[in-house]
Structures are given as structure tokens and as C-alpha cells.
Amino acid sequence: MSDLDLRIGTFRYDTTEALFDGSVTVDGARGTTMSTAATLPEIFERMARGDGVDVSEFGLTFLLRALDQGVPFVAIPAFPVRVFRHSCVFVNTDSGIAEPADLVGKTIGEFGVYGQDSGVWAKGILADEYGFRPERNRWVIGGLEHPAPPFTFTSHPHPDDLDITAAPDGRTLSAMLDAGEIDALFTANVPQPFLEGSPHVTRLFGDYEPVERDYYRRTGNFPIMHTVVARRELLETHPGLARAIYTAFCDAREAGARRYRQFRHLYQTPVMLPWVNALIEKNDRLFGEDWWPYGVSANWTALDTFLRYHHEQGLSARRWTVEEIIAPDLLDT
């Protein structure tokens, strides 16, 4: 493995910063080149097309779609992005949607593809908790802040009974929500009209934090959006590489967590957010000291839940198992 120059694609997060600044490296690789992009779909597309990266952050839904197409990807159980998703459902204030039951029969937007990672979680949670059924809705796929067609680097499976259309040319989902052209939006990012204080856009769950904390207490699910993937033949050609990559991502995440712990001594003065100490103490009581676990055992429930949702929503040809998608020599993590 010492002859390997490894190219890793990921966004620059506090969980990956140490990989970018070189304070954490992949043991045994001759060199590591970090690659990022302006948007996450660009990173995913590079991996999907085999363009300039060997290992990459990758959305869980895009991994499962690739596996259904026979692409020999395998997941390394590091999870740089995870977000509670009650907060990702936005509605037009004139749509008549005040609670989840009001979503029935409405037109809902989704960015890039039907079944984004955030959308899979939102639909699954709403189905489990409130009886939501996606086939009762109309779905519009497009760009969030810039007009864009559905993604071309991935497959687009969906149940035959779903009403799915592309957004009109030149229109964005954010603008359509603000104008009432769609009633709701399931989104990975906060729409700009909401950030600008538009009176026409609000969240379905206005006070979402206690709802999401209660969801975690009851289910143990901290929703995972992205994992890290490599091609199976790369890992088979270089024994020990999967473990080395996993360890590097763990070390980088720990470096970020350690900064937060150290900042507590200074009342988080290096961070421009008031009361961060109080938030960390609150999170410690809920999650314990490891708020952002990597590895299979600590994330089995969340992974298995996503795999179930993906199949139930007609996005997977079959019900994948955790053991099938994770690198075999990392199932003990």
C-alpha cells in the first residue's frame, strides 16, 4: 500500500478539517490528496463517474442506487454528515398545511432527485410517526436556488404510482415555494426565502428541536445522510486500506470534537455563537460524550432504518442489509 497515492473527495467540515490541513493522514498511503467542490452533488458525481477521486463522501441513497446498478462500491462506516430531519420540511403559509396530516394531496418539491437522503429520512419519519404516504402527493424535482434538471449521474427509481415531474424551465424550488406554486419542500438546505424572512415560507415543525430530541430518545436514530465509499477492487487490491481510511476519518472527527471540548475551558470564545457551552452540556446529557459516532455497532439502528425506508419508498430493488453495504473487515467497528 506504500505505493498508493490516494485521492479523497469530501466537503470541508469540522469532522474532516484535519484531513485537509494534513494533521491527520491515511496510514500506509504514500500520499493523500484532498479534493472538494462548490456543491456536494459535484463531489458525488466525481465518485459516480470515477473522475479524479478514489474514496469519497457519498450520499446513502446514491450508494444504494449504485449498488442496485451493480457498481462495486462499498461503504466505510464514517459519517461526516448527519442531520435531524423534522426541521427540513418547509411549507407555504397559504397552503393550509399546519400539521403532518395536512400534507395529503399537496404538491411537494425535492432537490435533484426523488429520494434525496434528507427526503428519504423525512418521508420515513413522517410515515412512521404520522402515517404519511408519498403516493398521495405530487412531486416536483428541480434545483433549490438555481434552475437545474434532475441529476444525471444517478438512477431515478420510484414507484409507478407516483406523480413526479421536473420543475419548469427557469424555475427554482425555493421561488416556487415562496410563490405558492408548490405547497411544501423537503430539502437538505434551508431555502433562501426562509432565511430572508419571507412571510410565505415556514417550517412544518416550527419548534423542531424538542421534537427531534424526543425522536432521538425514543428511537436512537441520529439520521445519517452521507458515508464514505470506495470501489471494492481498490480495497481488495490494498489489504488494510479500508481500516486505514476508517481510522483517518475517525481521527479527523476526534480532532474536531477535541477542539470543542478544549474550547469549553474558554467558554467557547473561539466560536462566534453565544451559549455554545450550554448546548454542548445539553447534548452531553442526551448523547453522552460521543455525539457523532462512527463505526457499525453505534450506528446499526440508523443505518438499518435508512435501508428500510429506502426499500419501503420504492427506491431500492430489494431490502439491503447493513452487512452487505459495509466493507467486510470493518463490520467489527
Rank of each mutant, 00 (worst) to 15 (best):
M1N: 09
M1Y: 12
D5S: 15
D5M: 11
R7M: 13
G9C: 06
T10W: 09
F11R: 14
R12G: 05
T15S: 14
A18R: 07
L19P: 07
D21H: 13
G22L: 13
G22M: 14
V24W: 13
V24G: 09
V26G: 04
V26P: 03
V26A: 06
A29D: 01
A29H: 01
T32N: 02
T33Q: 15
S35N: 12
F44V: 01
R46F: 02
R46W: 04
M47V: 01
M47R: 02
R49P: 05
D51W: 08
V53R: 02
V53D: 02
D54A: 04
V55Q: 02
S56K: 02
F58C: 03
G59R: 01
L63T: 06
L63P: 04
D68P: 03
Q69F: 04
P72E: 12
F73M: 13
I76L: 15
A78T: 12
F90A: 06
F90W: 13
V91H: 04
G96L: 07
A98P: 00
A101G: 12
L103Q: 08
L103C: 13
V104G: 08
V104C: 10
I108D: 00
G109V: 01
G109H: 03
E110P: 00
G112R: 00
Q116I: 03
V120F: 02
A122E: 14
D128I: 05
F132H: 15
P134T: 10
E135K: 01
N137F: 04
R138I: 04
G142F: 04
P149L: 12
H156C: 00
P157Y: 00
P157C: 00
P159H: 05
D163H: 11
T165H: 06
A179N: 09
A179M: 07
A179P: 02
G180D: 12
A184W: 06
T187S: 15
N189Q: 15
Q192P: 02
L195A: 13
T202Y: 03
E209L: 15
E209H: 10
P210W: 15
V211S: 11
E212M: 15
R218G: 11
T219G: 05
G220C: 11
F222S: 06
T227M: 12
R232A: 09
L234S: 08
L235V: 08
T237F: 06
L241I: 03
A242W: 01
A248N: 07
F249I: 07
F249K: 04
E254K: 07
R261C: 02
F263R: 06
H265S: 13
L266D: 13
T269W: 05
T269V: 09
L273A: 11
N277C: 03
L279R: 14
R285C: 05
F287Y: 15
G288C: 07
G288D: 05
W291L: 10
W291C: 04
W292Q: 03
W292V: 01
T301H: 11
D304L: 04
Y309I: 01
H311T: 07
H311F: 14
E312L: 09
L315A: 00
R318D: 08
E323P: 07
E323C: 10
I325L: 11
A327H: 08
P328T: 10
L331K: 10
L331C: 11
D332N: 15
